[in-house]
Design a protein around this nucleic acid. Structure first.
Length: 211
DNA sequence: CACCAGGCAAGTA
DNA sequence: TACTTGCATGGT
Protein backbone atom coordinates (compact mmCIF):
# COMPACT_ATOMS: atom_id res chain seq x y z
CA UNK A 1 0.00 0.00 0.00
CA UNK A 2 1.48 3.33 -0.96
CA UNK A 3 -1.02 5.21 1.18
CA UNK A 4 0.04 4.79 4.78
CA UNK A 5 -2.66 7.15 6.02
CA UNK A 6 -5.35 4.97 4.47
CA UNK A 7 -3.67 1.81 5.75
CA UNK A 8 -3.66 3.10 9.31
CA UNK A 9 -7.33 3.92 9.12
CA UNK A 10 -8.20 0.48 7.75
CA UNK A 11 -6.31 -1.26 10.52
CA UNK A 12 -7.79 0.83 13.29
CA UNK A 13 -11.30 0.49 11.91
CA UNK A 14 -10.90 -3.28 11.67
CA UNK A 15 -9.43 -3.52 15.17
CA UNK A 16 -11.73 -1.19 17.10
CA UNK A 17 -14.90 -0.89 15.00
CA UNK A 18 -17.17 2.17 14.92
CA UNK A 19 -16.56 4.71 17.69
CA UNK A 20 -19.76 6.82 17.64
CA UNK A 21 -17.64 9.69 18.74
CA UNK A 22 -18.10 13.06 20.30
CA UNK A 23 -20.96 12.45 22.66
CA UNK A 24 -23.14 15.53 22.55
CA UNK A 25 -26.84 15.92 22.01
CA UNK A 26 -26.61 19.23 20.15
CA UNK A 27 -24.08 21.30 18.20
CA UNK A 28 -24.01 23.69 21.14
CA UNK A 29 -22.97 20.95 23.56
CA UNK A 30 -20.27 19.84 21.17
CA UNK A 31 -18.92 23.37 20.84
CA UNK A 32 -18.96 23.85 24.60
CA UNK A 33 -17.19 20.55 25.13
CA UNK A 34 -14.51 21.48 22.59
CA UNK A 35 -13.48 24.46 24.72
CA UNK A 36 -13.86 22.76 28.10
CA UNK A 37 -11.80 19.73 27.13
CA UNK A 38 -8.67 21.74 26.31
CA UNK A 39 -5.83 19.88 28.03
CA UNK A 40 -8.46 18.27 30.24
CA UNK A 41 -9.86 14.78 30.71
CA UNK A 42 -13.27 14.28 29.08
CA UNK A 43 -14.60 12.82 32.34
CA UNK A 44 -14.37 16.21 34.03
CA UNK A 45 -15.99 17.90 31.05
CA UNK A 46 -18.98 15.59 30.87
CA UNK A 47 -19.54 16.15 34.59
CA UNK A 48 -19.83 19.87 33.92
CA UNK A 49 -22.11 19.41 30.91
CA UNK A 50 -24.42 17.19 32.93
CA UNK A 51 -24.70 19.63 35.79
CA UNK A 52 -25.36 22.51 33.40
CA UNK A 53 -28.08 20.39 31.83
CA UNK A 54 -29.73 19.75 35.20
CA UNK A 55 -29.86 23.50 35.77
CA UNK A 56 -31.33 24.20 32.35
CA UNK A 57 -28.27 26.14 31.22
CA UNK A 58 -27.31 24.01 28.26
CA UNK A 59 -28.07 26.45 25.47
CA UNK A 60 -26.31 29.27 23.69
CA UNK A 61 -28.87 31.80 24.92
CA UNK A 62 -28.64 30.69 28.57
CA UNK A 63 -24.86 30.68 28.85
CA UNK A 64 -24.48 33.83 26.76
CA UNK A 65 -26.70 35.62 29.27
CA UNK A 66 -24.85 34.26 32.32
CA UNK A 67 -22.23 36.58 33.86
CA UNK A 68 -18.66 35.40 33.43
CA UNK A 69 -18.10 34.96 37.19
CA UNK A 70 -21.15 32.70 37.46
CA UNK A 71 -20.10 30.73 34.43
CA UNK A 72 -16.65 30.20 35.93
CA UNK A 73 -18.11 28.73 39.11
CA UNK A 74 -20.31 26.32 37.18
CA UNK A 75 -17.55 24.98 34.95
CA UNK A 76 -15.07 24.59 37.80
CA UNK A 77 -14.58 20.78 37.63
CA UNK A 78 -13.29 21.09 34.06
CA UNK A 79 -10.20 22.96 35.29
CA UNK A 80 -8.69 26.29 34.12
CA UNK A 81 -12.14 27.60 34.90
CA UNK A 82 -11.35 31.33 34.94
CA UNK A 83 -9.59 31.15 31.60
CA UNK A 84 -12.26 28.95 30.05
CA UNK A 85 -15.08 31.19 31.24
CA UNK A 86 -13.38 34.08 29.44
CA UNK A 87 -12.90 32.01 26.30
CA UNK A 88 -16.55 31.00 26.24
CA UNK A 89 -17.81 34.52 26.81
CA UNK A 90 -15.65 35.82 23.95
CA UNK A 91 -16.83 32.98 21.70
CA UNK A 92 -20.49 33.66 22.48
CA UNK A 93 -20.02 37.39 21.83
CA UNK A 94 -18.36 36.65 18.47
CA UNK A 95 -21.25 34.41 17.46
CA UNK A 96 -23.86 36.96 18.54
CA UNK A 97 -22.16 39.76 16.63
CA UNK A 98 -21.57 37.66 13.54
CA UNK A 99 -24.84 35.76 13.11
CA UNK A 100 -28.52 35.71 13.99
CA UNK A 101 -28.13 32.42 15.87
CA UNK A 102 -25.74 29.51 16.42
CA UNK A 103 -27.17 27.52 13.53
CA UNK A 104 -26.40 30.30 11.08
CA UNK A 105 -22.91 30.73 12.53
CA UNK A 106 -22.09 27.04 12.16
CA UNK A 107 -23.64 26.90 8.69
CA UNK A 108 -20.92 29.08 7.16
CA UNK A 109 -18.34 27.81 4.75
CA UNK A 110 -15.79 25.72 6.66
CA UNK A 111 -12.82 27.94 5.89
CA UNK A 112 -14.62 31.13 6.89
CA UNK A 113 -15.92 29.49 10.05
CA UNK A 114 -12.45 28.29 11.00
CA UNK A 115 -11.01 31.77 10.57
CA UNK A 116 -13.67 33.34 12.73
CA UNK A 117 -13.13 30.75 15.47
CA UNK A 118 -9.37 31.27 15.38
CA UNK A 119 -9.89 35.00 15.78
CA UNK A 120 -11.35 34.37 19.25
CA UNK A 121 -8.64 34.57 21.92
CA UNK A 122 -8.40 31.16 23.56
CA UNK A 123 -9.46 29.15 20.52
CA UNK A 124 -6.54 27.59 18.68
CA UNK A 125 -6.36 25.24 15.71
CA UNK A 126 -7.45 22.06 17.46
CA UNK A 127 -10.46 23.59 19.16
CA UNK A 128 -11.49 25.43 15.97
CA UNK A 129 -11.22 22.28 13.87
CA UNK A 130 -13.10 20.23 16.47
CA UNK A 131 -15.96 22.69 16.27
CA UNK A 132 -15.92 22.72 12.45
CA UNK A 133 -15.88 18.92 12.24
CA UNK A 134 -18.02 17.78 15.16
CA UNK A 135 -20.41 20.70 15.68
CA UNK A 136 -20.71 22.11 12.14
CA UNK A 137 -20.14 18.68 10.55
CA UNK A 138 -17.90 19.94 7.80
CA UNK A 139 -14.85 17.98 6.58
CA UNK A 140 -11.65 19.19 8.25
CA UNK A 141 -9.14 16.94 9.99
CA UNK A 142 -8.54 17.44 13.71
CA UNK A 143 -4.94 17.01 14.87
CA UNK A 144 -4.35 16.49 18.58
CA UNK A 145 -1.63 15.34 20.96
CA UNK A 146 -2.49 11.69 20.29
CA UNK A 147 -2.28 12.13 16.53
CA UNK A 148 1.14 13.70 16.90
CA UNK A 149 2.46 11.05 19.29
CA UNK A 150 1.16 8.11 17.26
CA UNK A 151 2.54 9.40 13.96
CA UNK A 152 5.85 10.22 15.61
CA UNK A 153 6.21 6.77 17.14
CA UNK A 154 5.60 5.16 13.82
CA UNK A 155 8.13 7.46 12.15
CA UNK A 156 5.59 9.08 9.88
CA UNK A 157 6.44 12.64 10.94
CA UNK A 158 9.38 14.45 12.49
CA UNK A 159 9.37 15.89 16.00
CA UNK A 160 9.28 19.38 14.50
CA UNK A 161 6.12 18.76 12.47
CA UNK A 162 3.57 21.51 13.03
CA UNK A 163 -0.22 21.40 13.19
CA UNK A 164 -1.01 22.40 9.61
CA UNK A 165 1.67 20.13 8.23
CA UNK A 166 0.20 17.09 9.98
CA UNK A 167 -3.32 18.09 9.04
CA UNK A 168 -2.31 18.39 5.40
CA UNK A 169 -1.01 14.80 5.39
CA UNK A 170 -4.48 13.56 6.17
CA UNK A 171 -6.37 16.01 3.96
CA UNK A 172 -4.37 15.22 0.85
CA UNK A 173 -4.45 11.44 1.25
CA UNK A 174 -8.08 10.87 2.13
CA UNK A 175 -11.40 11.60 0.44
CA UNK A 176 -12.88 14.75 1.95
CA UNK A 177 -15.73 13.19 3.93
CA UNK A 178 -17.02 14.39 7.30
CA UNK A 179 -17.91 10.89 8.50
CA UNK A 180 -14.45 9.57 7.65
CA UNK A 181 -12.59 12.41 9.38
CA UNK A 182 -14.87 12.08 12.40
CA UNK A 183 -14.22 8.35 12.68
CA UNK A 184 -10.50 8.56 11.97
CA UNK A 185 -9.81 11.10 14.69
CA UNK A 186 -11.91 9.09 17.13
CA UNK A 187 -9.92 5.96 16.32
CA UNK A 188 -6.61 7.77 16.87
CA UNK A 189 -7.76 8.91 20.29
CA UNK A 190 -8.91 5.40 21.14
CA UNK A 191 -5.55 3.99 20.10
CA UNK A 192 -3.74 6.71 22.02
CA UNK A 193 -5.63 6.01 25.21
CA UNK A 194 -5.23 2.27 25.08
CA UNK A 195 -1.86 1.67 23.46
CA UNK A 196 0.14 4.81 22.94
CA UNK A 197 0.36 6.58 26.28
CA UNK A 198 3.33 8.72 27.23
CA UNK A 199 4.35 6.20 29.86
CA UNK A 200 3.95 3.30 27.44
CA UNK A 201 6.64 3.99 24.83
CA UNK A 202 6.72 0.67 23.05
CA UNK A 203 3.65 -1.45 22.74
CA UNK A 204 3.71 -5.07 21.65
CA UNK A 205 -0.02 -5.28 21.14
CA UNK A 206 -0.29 -2.11 19.04
CA UNK A 207 -2.67 -2.70 16.11
CA UNK A 208 -0.30 -0.66 13.95
CA UNK A 209 2.69 -2.89 14.69
CA UNK A 210 4.82 -3.51 11.63
CA UNK A 211 3.71 -0.71 9.35
C1' DC B 1 3.29 11.15 46.07
C1' DA B 2 3.96 12.34 40.95
C1' DC B 3 1.96 12.32 36.71
C1' DC B 4 -1.54 12.84 33.29
C1' DA B 5 -5.66 14.62 30.53
C1' DG B 6 -9.16 15.39 23.46
C1' DG B 7 -4.52 23.50 24.50
C1' DC B 8 -3.55 28.09 24.23
C1' DA B 9 -1.52 32.54 25.07
C1' DA B 10 1.86 35.39 27.20
C1' DG B 11 6.33 36.14 28.89
C1' DT B 12 11.37 35.84 28.41
C1' DA B 13 15.90 36.20 26.12
C1' DT C 1 12.36 33.12 16.55
C1' DA C 2 12.59 29.42 20.17
C1' DC C 3 11.87 28.04 24.77
C1' DT C 4 9.37 28.39 29.17
C1' DT C 5 5.51 29.24 32.23
C1' DG C 6 0.62 29.88 33.91
C1' DC C 7 -3.72 28.19 34.02
C1' DA C 8 -6.53 24.08 37.73
C1' DT C 9 -9.46 20.13 38.44
C1' DG C 10 -9.97 15.14 39.31
C1' DG C 11 -8.40 10.30 38.34
C1' DT C 12 -4.67 6.66 38.55
Amino acid sequence: MSNRIQEIYDRLAAHFGPQHWWPGETPFEVMLGAVLTQNTNWRNVSQVIESLGREGLLSFEALDALPEEELAIRIRPSGYYNQKAGKLKRLFAAIREESADLEEFLGQDALALREKLLAVKGIGPETADSIVLYAAQQPVFVVDAYTYRILLRHDLISEEAGYEEIQEMFLCKLPSETALFNEYHALLVRLGKEHCKKSNPLCESCPLKGL
